[in-house]
Design a protein around this nucleic acid. Sequence first.
DNA 1: TTCCTTGCAAAACTTTTGCATTAAA
DNA 2: TTTAATGCAAAAGTTTTGCAAGGAA
Lengths: 143, 143
Amino acid sequence: MAIMDLDPGLIEDLNKRLAGHGVRPTAQRLRIASLLLGRPQHLSAEQVLAGLRNQGLRVSKATIYNTLNLFAASGLIRQLSVGSDRCWFDSNTDAHYHFHDVDSGALTDVCLRDVEFQRLPEPPPGMRVDGIDLIIRLRRKEA
Amino acid sequence: MAIMDLDPGLIEDLNKRLAGHGVRPTAQRLRIASLLLGRPQHLSAEQVLAGLRNQGLRVSKATIYNTLNLFAASGLIRQLSVGSDRCWFDSNTDAHYHFHDVDSGALTDVCLRDVEFQRLPEPPPGMRVDGIDLIIRLRRKEA
DNA sequence: TTCCTTGCAAAACTTTTGCATTAAA
DNA sequence: TTTAATGCAAAAGTTTTGCAAGGAA
């Protein structure tokens, strides 16, 4: 399956997004981008690898990690640490928060305006706030 | 070094804390508790292991993980996921939040009353909020 | 005895690295 | 031609598991 099998308009669009973040758009990167960036979602490296291989593509694990780390460093995606094991790559880079269903592990976005802070602490001297990670842990309601 | 080398009052105190959480107070567990629970701190499993071995104790990695997981499950400590790699065990179980210095990796407590929410989202139907993890990422302020 | 805890080694799992090959500028 | 990206395998790091031995109830 060649990169040309993707919709040309989509390729063009992803090309611009990658280039706009200083990322050279290679075939593998476009593949990964087309899998991940299409809609807001949270995928593990393993899921991205499996998704591409299900399309019949030949991709290596190293390239997956290289690319996901590159995307995260250049601001195309966000890396989330939720459980203790693997981490998640979030295609939604708008500021937002998360619900975390502790039982199922599921992550759901919480949009920015559903949370308002009345008070936040001053950062220590010489430091500035780089971002806020808010995870609302959920459990099933007892009867 | 026997467990008796610990202050008897401390042992008694830890004994009660463990028992109060349904954890049988064995020698190794008391050792780990005395290292971790004495003051608010964030330690990795590796750090707990090294701390005990520095005291000349013979402890296995499996026991460290067994015990830390048991402590976390019984509410004696909290497990934190911050970076993507290892996780941290927090001896402070009071509700609180964290600063995370992205450059150094350092974690600092933010006390409950330094954060106030004006609005929080409703949990999805059938779910209840189990807790809120708030991590304020910090970077050095540019000149 | 019986059940639980511990140590040790090995396994499992996630992520990174080294290096040769390939592709792109 | 020169640099960067990719695949593969191996390595590194963290956490879990299997099992035998030891301890407590």
